[in-house]
Design a protein around this nucleic acid. Structure first.
Length: 310
RNA sequence: GUCGCGAUAGCCAAGCGGUUAGGCAGAGGUCUGCAAAACCUUUCAGGUGGGUUCAACUCCCACUCGCGACU
């Protein structure tokens, strides 16, 4: 395999930084194909709220792959993304991953997560979901005292995380086949030669862009999109637990006003952008590009140029 | 003008003579199959001037401002 076949470009950044637009430019310039890394744009019919860009002539992979009532996961994402990457490589093109979902990008950059192959246990989750946090803590502590004690506060109090840890603990019988999968996966991954460009900007700048976009989405008809979705899916569907949809739940249930919903939504978007930033900050080998700088798109081009000619 | 009520951090909003209110916003963080999720940490007070007290955001007085009522 030639080195050229292992190149991978990753473009990340918080919401409202214009990732997709720039990725499209780069794709044209460098014979690239886009793969989305967005945990929400995978849902069909959720276009306005997730800010989905669907350019006419350029397909973006891993968009619209499931319906809002289906659930998805990193492990699945990783698998699909790897498939797409190798497909694109075999066409002698440059795969470009674009998106804002830190965990998904992490699964590409840092693929040897040893528990991705432990499948969710629906029955177990069904029961555990009714447990209180302290009951979950007790249970996990009982199953694995050491691991429990090593948890930080944030993990200890997070029911989702506790449930998953318990699930993993209870499925250790599959250890052997798990290791096998990991091995084969590592082989593929080790050959990636990736460049990770991450867009960034001061919070205040991001916030003003977000605020403007909130208004724009309302004008584009977000409310009717939600109404339409509610005809086919319920609020408990995984897809509907998404920023810019979930904030309107109390409004549609007549428990809150429109302006409350909108301000909650706006603040949620701010917090989301902050969380995204913390994720990208700690990623290895990342080049940050401040979009408030004049020549940011040219400098992105330069980096890619240099990367491809290495 | 008189009487009453109020004045608490960027916003909302409590209790209290000495010990953390809380929520939202803001800031930072966690993350190994729900991640645009879930969770953790955290900055910022007491209108102004006096007085009482060992100690006042909390009691008293004046002033300023706001709200309401009355002449």
């Amino acid at each position: 395999m030639k080195i050229e076949d292992c190149k991978l470009l990753i473009i990340s950044g918080p919401t409202a930084t214009g990732k997709t637009a720039l990725a499209l430019k780069l794709a044209k310039k460098f014979n690239g194909v886009l793969i989305s890394a967005d945990s929400r744009q995978i849902y069909q019919g959720m276009d306005i709220g997730t800010g989905k860009d669907k350019p006419k002539n350029t397909p973006i992979h891993l968009l619209d792959i499931i319906t809002p009532d289906q659930s998805f996961s990193v492990a699945l994402y990783q698998k699909l993304a790897f498939q797409k990457i190798s497909e694109i490589h075999s066409q002698k093109k440059l795969p470009i991953i674009v998106g804002g979902t830190g965990q998904y990008i992490d699964s590409i950059i840092n693929p040897n997560k040893q528990t991705y192959s432990v499948k969710p246990n629906k029955t177990l989750r069904f029961f555990l979901n009714r447990f209180s946090t302290s009951n979950l803590q007790n249970l996990y502590s009982f199953l694995d005292r050491r691991a429990f004690d090593a948890l930080n506060n944030s993990e200890k109090n997070n029911p989702h995380r506790l449930i998953r840890k318990i699930e993993i603990k209870l499925s250790t019988k599959n250890e052997d086949c798990r290791l096998k999968t990991e091995d084969s996966r590592l082989k593929i991954v080790n050959c990636f030669d990736f460049l990770h460009l991450s867009f960034t900007a001061p919070n205040s700048y991001l916030y003003s862009r977000i605020d403007a976009r909130v208004k724009a989405r309302l004008d584009q008809g977000l409310l009717s999109e939600i109404k339409y979705l509610l005809k086919n899916y319920s609020w408990s569907s995984p897809g509907l637990n998404t920023l810019s949809y979930k904030e309107f739940r109390p409004y549609f249930k007549q428990k809150s006003t429109m302006s409350n919903a909108i301000s909650k939504w706006t603040y949620d978007e701010h917090a989301y952008a902050r969380r995204q930033k913390t994720w990208f900050k700690k990623m290895p080998n990342t080049i940050f590009i401040d979009i408030t700088q004049n020549n940011y798109s040219q400098s992105a081009v330069k980096y890619v140029n240099k990367f491809l000619n290495n």
